[in-house]
């Protein structure tokens, strides 16, 4: 079984009648880093909360490691580590105590050696006897991660791990995530920063208004991103693309008044020089040319608009 999380037609309506999840379908592969990208209020936290047992699902099903999160919650939850969006920590407990507490809560026997390893990995070992109140914001966030890792979960949910965190800490967080992936943990993180999804995810899901608009390999999304369009406005209308230009895969647009050429900016050659030369040889006169690039931001905004419509 390659999918560690299977979400089927998940819906959630809050007590006030607000529908925060409108039928989400999502399969998460074992060992991947999936970024859920979406604006505030999109339903990211609701989705995670429903998977992890913090809110009751409305309808639909969620399987984690093949276990239903409602009917087989014990088996399902044992596999899950959750780092919540808010820094929810008991202020007066010691770092190592609160981490050991989490491990016990998940039914695991004490294991000081493992906890030491986790604290070292997160650069918290020096602070093991400090009380939570004495820590900086970034350290508190790492304590939350240590708690989530304390019971050796297979799937780790990170809800906006870098919201309100400065650039340096954000890089730290990305390193931590990369390390965890190396160790085989499946990671789902939510973010509303496009660069963050770009920087660390294997796949990116875009969520808005309770709907998952797309889930795609980052590489594919980036390939789309790397594409640029060149629009060539023509003096005289064409009824068809001339045969000599067929290799360029041109599109005839604006009623034959313009040609559109799509090319990859990351390629060695864009082919523009040659195209322009061939256009001249074919006796086609140009009036103007423009290029445009679709950024992830654009794709994202476009999707969100479509979703809202």
């Amino acid at each position: 079984m390659d999918n560690i999380v299977e979400i089927r037609d998940l819906r959630k309506t809050y007590a006030g009648g607000f529908e925060a999840l409108k039928g989400v379908n999502l399969s998460i592969k074992k060992g991947e880093i999936l970024a859920l990208l979406g604006p505030n209020g999109a339903g990211k936290t609701t989705l995670i909360s429903t998977i992890c047992g913090i809110t009751n699902p409305g309808s639909g099903s969620v399987l984690v490691g093949g276990h239903d999160v409602v009917t087989q919650y014990r088996d399902a939850r044992r596999l899950i580590g959750l780092v919540p969006q808010e820094i929810n920590l008991e202020p007066f407990s010691k770092v190592k105590d609160t981490v050991a507490f989490s491990r016990g809560l998940f039914g695991k026997p004490r294991n000081p050696a493992l906890i030491e390893r986790i604290l070292r990995q997160l650069s918290l070992w020096e602070k093991r006897d400090a009380r939570v109140v004495e820590l900086s914001g970034g350290m508190k966030r790492r304590v939350l991660i240590a708690k989530a890792l304390s019971h050796e979960p297979e799937v780790l949910f990170l809800d906006e791990p870098t919201a309100g965190v400065d650039v340096e800490l954000r890089k730290d967080m990305w390193d931590i995530v990369a390390e965890l992936k190396e160790l085989g943990t499946t990671i789902i993180l939510t973010t509303h920063y496009i660069e963050e999804a770009e920087a660390i995810a294997d796949r990116i899901g875009v969520i808005s208004s309770g709907q998952l608009l797309l889930v795609e390999e980052k590489a594919e999304l980036m390939a789309r991103l790397g594409q640029k369009r060149l629009q060539i406005d023509l003096q005289d209308k064409l009824s068809a693309v001339p045969d000599v230009l067929v290799e360029y895969n041109l599109e005839l647009v604006e009623d034959g008044q313009a040609l559109r050429y799509t090319y990859d900016t990351r390629g060695e050659r864009t082919g523009i020089t040659r195209l322009l030369g061939d256009l001249a040889s074919a006796g086609i006169t140009l009036t103007d040319i423009q290029t445009e690039q679709s950024s992830l931001e654009e794709i994202f905004v476009g999707l969100v608009k479509e979703g809202a419509a």
């Binding site: 014990r74 929810n88 920590l89 202020p91 998940f106």
Partner: peptide, 11 residues
């Protein structure tokens, strides 16, 4: 203080 999330998400 919000730490109840842990009780709710534990087995």
């Amino acid at each position: 203080i919000g730490t109840i999330y842990e009780l709710l998400s534990a087995p």
